[in-house]
Simulated scan of single mutants.
Amino acid sequence: MGVSTASVREQLEVARALKLVEVKPRTGIKPLPYNFSDAIHISLNYAIEVNPELFRDFSDLRKKIEAAYWYEVAAQVTGEDIHYLNQLVDRAMEKLRSRPPQIPQWEHRELHITLYKRLRNPFVLGLLEAYWDMYEQAGLNSFVDLAYLEAVWQYHQSIVSALEKGDLVGGYKMLTEHMNLLYQRPHDDSRQKFE
């Protein structure tokens, strides 16, 4: 094909880094299912390491995408989804009430991903998955203030309750108010900053 072995290795390494292919000895090269999250994760990781403040811009993008797709998503949520979302809220509240309180980070991620999973839009889902990966990396899964976390989960409870009642407008209002809480979050100045 007129391509050097070194060039093929470099190109293959890029494809592996983007998780487009899997390379194993004796079995060869296998294409992997496309995942937008994998494709953008490397760039986001670099951006936030260089300038942690960029997470705020990415968070704003995520907020606007969730809001834009809310009505489409809300119309697709099933009774089974609502049951699972209620379980997540209950589990999160238990964690917050435990002594010492625990951060319901997994439940937070799972609740938002579950809300949007029926879209079948790999770009929306990939962006949300990348957001939650970066949320942890940006240090926002650290315990800052119990009152703040309780407010977040009260909003989640209201969102799920609105979905259960078929109140899509009320659910949208709760979702957008909830996402604005991130900007009111108390800052943890002890967190390490990248120089």
Rank of each mutant, 00 (worst) to 15 (best):
A17V: 07
M134G: 03
V169S: 11
H83N: 11
G139Y: 07
E94R: 13
G170T: 09
A68C: 02
E136C: 04
S7C: 04
D145E: 14
Y172H: 15
M174T: 02
A74F: 12
V89Y: 04
Q76F: 03
F143C: 03
D145C: 13
S142P: 00
D189M: 13
V3D: 12
W153Q: 06
P186S: 09
Y148N: 02
V89T: 07
I103H: 11
N141Y: 01
L32N: 08
A68V: 01
I65G: 02
T78D: 05
R185A: 04
A138C: 05
S158R: 15
N121G: 07
L175C: 06
H112W: 03
L32F: 08
A6T: 13
K173E: 10
L168C: 01
S142H: 09
A130N: 11
P33D: 10
K165I: 00
T78V: 09
I42S: 14
Y131V: 00
K173S: 05
D81E: 03
H187V: 13
P100I: 03
T27P: 01
D38I: 01
D133F: 03
T176W: 05
Y135V: 01
P122N: 04
G79I: 01
K193P: 00
N180V: 00
P33W: 03
I113T: 05
L119V: 08
L127C: 08
P186Y: 09
K24N: 12
S4M: 02
D188P: 02
F123I: 08
L163F: 09
S98D: 10
E49Y: 13
E177F: 11
H108Q: 06
R91Q: 12
L125I: 14
E72T: 12
G126E: 07
R9H: 10
D60N: 06
V77W: 07
V14C: 01
H156N: 15
A67M: 02
L88E: 03
R99W: 06
V124G: 10
A67K: 07
L128W: 10
E164Q: 14
R56M: 02
I29H: 08
M93V: 09
V3S: 13
Q192Y: 14
R99E: 12
W70I: 04
D57H: 12
H41Y: 12
L115I: 09
F58E: 02
E13T: 14
M1H: 08
S4H: 08
V144W: 02
T27I: 10
T78M: 12
L18A: 15
D189C: 02
G166N: 05
V8M: 14
A147P: 00
N121C: 05
F36M: 08
D38W: 10
